[in-house]
Amino acid sequence: LTVISMTDDTYTVTAMKETLDRSNLGLLEVGDEVNVERSMMMNGRLDGHIVQGHVDQTATCVDIKDAEGSYYFTFRYAFDKEMAKRGYITVDKGSVTVNGVSLTVCNPTDDTFQVAIIPYTFEHTNFHAFKVGSVVNLEFDIIGKYISRMIQYK
Rank of each mutant, 00 (worst) to 15 (best):
K154D: 13
T121S: 15
H54F: 13
I4C: 10
Y146I: 04
D8F: 02
E82R: 10
I117P: 06
I50C: 13
A116Q: 08
D32C: 10
T14A: 12
N24H: 08
K154A: 11
Y77N: 01
Y72A: 00
Q114W: 05
V132E: 08
T112I: 04
Y120Q: 12
R86I: 02
E68A: 15
V132D: 02
L27S: 12
K81F: 05
N107R: 08
M42W: 03
G133S: 15
Y88K: 02
D110S: 10
D9W: 04
E82A: 13
P108R: 02
F127A: 05
G26E: 10
G100H: 13
D47H: 14
Q57N: 06
R22N: 14
D9L: 06
L138M: 05
L28I: 04
K85V: 00
G53I: 05
Y88S: 03
G94C: 00
K65G: 01
V96M: 08
E33M: 08
I50K: 13
R86H: 05
R22D: 10
H124C: 03
I147G: 02
V51D: 07
I151A: 00
Y146D: 01
C61R: 04
E29A: 13
P119H: 03
M42G: 11
S148L: 01
V36M: 13
S148Y: 00
T121N: 09
D92R: 01
M16F: 15
D110W: 07
V115T: 10
G53C: 08
G87W: 00
M40G: 15
L28G: 04
D47F: 14
Y72G: 00
V34M: 07
R149P: 00
Q57Y: 02
D110T: 09
Y88M: 07
R45H: 11
D21K: 11
V51Q: 06
L20W: 14
D66W: 09
F122C: 01
N35Y: 09
G48T: 05
E18I: 12
A67C: 11
I50W: 12
F130Q: 14
I4T: 14
S39Q: 08
G48Q: 04
R22F: 13
T90E: 01
D110L: 15
I4F: 06
E37D: 15
T121I: 12
D21L: 07
K65A: 11
V115I: 14
H128W: 05
F73Y: 01
S23R: 04
A78E: 15
S23E: 10
M42E: 04
C106K: 02
M40Q: 15
I142E: 00
F130A: 11
K85H: 04
H54P: 06
T121Y: 12
G144S: 07
C106Y: 07
E37A: 14
E18V: 09
I64N: 06
